[in-house]
């Protein structure tokens, strides 16, 4: 009897895992099925590397280079803004704050992760963009910088809490050894703790990258949506995600434009796949022989 129960439980767990994998495969199949049809008409080189996204013009052109650059620059900007803040907070929480202060600060930072992205977008559009336009006396506040700033704030909790976990799991003996050798607190943090927690920190940055590049609502509302290669950080851009979201609603199913939006999804999928793959490689523990 006990054996049967055990068997049933194992089978259910197995089926659950199987179903998840099937879901993923079905999504990938669907996206590739609809996206690859574009390349019967448009060469993949033109799609990836030319800069003219005029999907409803006659004749249409599907050059996504500016959209890819849009996604990458916004994400890079977000990481540049998020890294010092989130690593600084992680160091503070893990190494410097008293246990009581840690109990207060950590949940507050993690609360940032619980704010829905549309709320960030609304905040960016209604408050931050007009302020940024005034502060830097720009023509428009909906631009690369504003988007990066908001995305940066959104990825702080991800990078911070995972890095902090990594630093926390560094054995105390390492800190004690460093201090015993006469190193100061900051020398211990930068030369002993951070190198030991390196893997977790890199992994957290890659997860933050994945979060930022996939974010749609915020960039749809704040990036300005101009399909151009930005010449400065204060120019509007048009990331892949917001292009798909804005144009999918009213395209005709089976149209070339429809296929092109799926092809954009393939590009996004490949970018996130590689960032996940690298994360996986970084996190995987070395096998001891």
């Amino acid at each position: 009897m006990k054996d049967i129960k055990e068997k049933i439980f194992q089978t259910i767990a197995y089926l659950a895992a199987l179903l998840t994998v099937i879901c993923l495969l079905a999504i990938i199949y669907g996206i590739f099925h609809d996206g690859l049809s574009l390349f019967k008409v448009v060469s993949w080189k033109d799609f990836l590397f030319t800069n003219n996204w005029y999907p409803t013009h006659y004749p249409p052109s599907f050059g996504a280079w500016a959209l890819i650059i849009g996604s990458l620059t916004v994400t890079l900007g977000a990481l540049i803004i998020a890294l010092p803040l989130s690593l600084g907070s992680a160091i503070f929480i893990a190494e410097i704050a008293s246990p009581r202060l840690r109990e207060i600060v950590k949940p507050i930072i993690e609360l940032l992760a619980g704010i829905p992205s549309v709320v960030y977008g609304l905040f960016g559009m209604a408050f931050l963009a007009p302020l940024i336009r005034q502060w830097f006396s720009l023509d428009t506040g909906l631009n690369l910088f504003t988007s990066s700033l908001i995305l940066g704030i959104m990825v702080i909790p991800i990078i911070c809490s995972i890095s902090e976990d990594a630093m926390n799991s560094v054995p105390h003996s390492i800190r004690e050894a460093s201090l015993a050798l006469g190193a100061t607190k900051s020398e211990t943090i930068f030369k002993a703790v951070i190198p030991a927690a390196k893997k977790g920190i890199i992994g957290s940055i890659l997860l933050g990258f994945g979060r930022a590049i996939g974010e749609t609502m915020v960039v749809l509302m704040v990036s300005g949506g101009a399909a151009q290669i930005p010449k400065s950080i204060f120019e509007p851009v048009r990331p892949l995600t917001s292009t798909i979201a804005a144009e999918m609603g009213e395209t005709i199913m089976g149209d070339l434009h429809y296929n092109a939006l799926f092809a954009l999804a393939i590009v996004l999928l490949i970018i996130t796949f590689f960032s996940n793959l690298i994360t996986e490689i970084v996190f995987r523990p070395k096998r001891q022989k």
Binding site: N51, N52, W53, Y54, H57, Y58, A66, T140, L142, L220, M221, G224, G225, A226, A227, Q228, E235, P236, R238, A245, A246
Partner: peptide, 12 residues
Amino acid sequence: GAKVSSSAQLLA
């Protein structure tokens, strides 16, 4: 028949 400049912001 003319194309909107790529620096135009497209809003939703």
